[in-house]
């Protein structure tokens, strides 16, 4: 079970590497606009160097199809809830300033990838290979935290070193979208520090 998850993460890391490369050039211009999700749909899906193409396409075709399906319905549904595609879940990221961004994440995609696709400033120094802890996120709701598979020893080893660790901390590159997680809310560490000031510390248990 754990092993399978680990494998998935490794595949994820390959993909992220590719995605971040392709996306880099456009990131700066569209940082302050939230429409990046739709933009992504319009941009070609393989801006990657050709030597990666073969690998990425085969592993990614599933996700790509989902995305494609969404793009046709997106214009009809806008951001309305309730009428979502089964293959995508809603996730909210709360950034360091406490600002919320709502995104849709295809099932099977890691929160790190999802964040990067949507220009959310979640770091990922090791690109999802469980060697950095910079993708640290805090699950805002214990019920959701409990729906996640337990972290592996390897993830716990990196969590040990995460900045601002809490009881519901996880590594974004290890949290993979699945239907039960629909409605997941994730905070970037500094946001919880601000909450602490405001007296809204998320209290697990």
């Amino acid at each position: 079970m754990n092993m399978a998850k680990f494998k998935l993460a490794q595949v994820g890391s390959l993909l992220v590497r590719e995605l971040t490369r392709g996306q880099f050039t456009t990131t700066i211009q569209r940082r302050y606009l939230q429409r990046s999700y739709n933009q992504y749909l319009q941009s070609p899906v393989s801006p990657s160097p050709s030597n990666y193409k073969g690998i990425s396409f085969s592993v990614y075709s599933h996700a790509y199809n989902n995305r494609h399906a969404f793009s046709t319905s997106a214009s009809d549904n806008g951001h309305e809830e309730g009428n979502q595609q089964k293959e995508k879940i809603s996730v909210t990221f709360i950034d360091k300033g406490g600002e919320e961004t709502h995104i849709k994440v295809p099932v099977g995609m890691s929160m790190l990838e999802a964040a990067h696709e949507n220009d959310i400033e979640l770091e990922g120094a090791c690109e999802g290979s469980l060697a950095c802890s910079t993708c640290h996120v805090i699950v805002m709701d214990v019920d959701y935290y409990n729906k996640l598979e337990d972290p592996t020893d390897e993830e716990n080893d990196m969590l040990d070193l995460a900045f601002g660790l809490t009881e519901t901390s996880r590594l974004g590159c290890q949290v993979i979208a699945k239907p039960e997680l629909d409605g997941l809310r994730l905070a970037l560490p500094a946001a919880t520090r601000n909450f602490a000031v405001d007296g809204h510390v998320p209290k697990p248990h």
Partner: peptide, 17 residues
């Protein structure tokens, strides 16, 4: 034998671009 830790140079290499 920690190649994963060194992946961060990808990010650093984009800075001087």
């Amino acid at each position: 034998d920690h190649p994963e830790t060194k992946i961060v140079v990808n990010q650093f290499s984009r800075v001087p671009l």
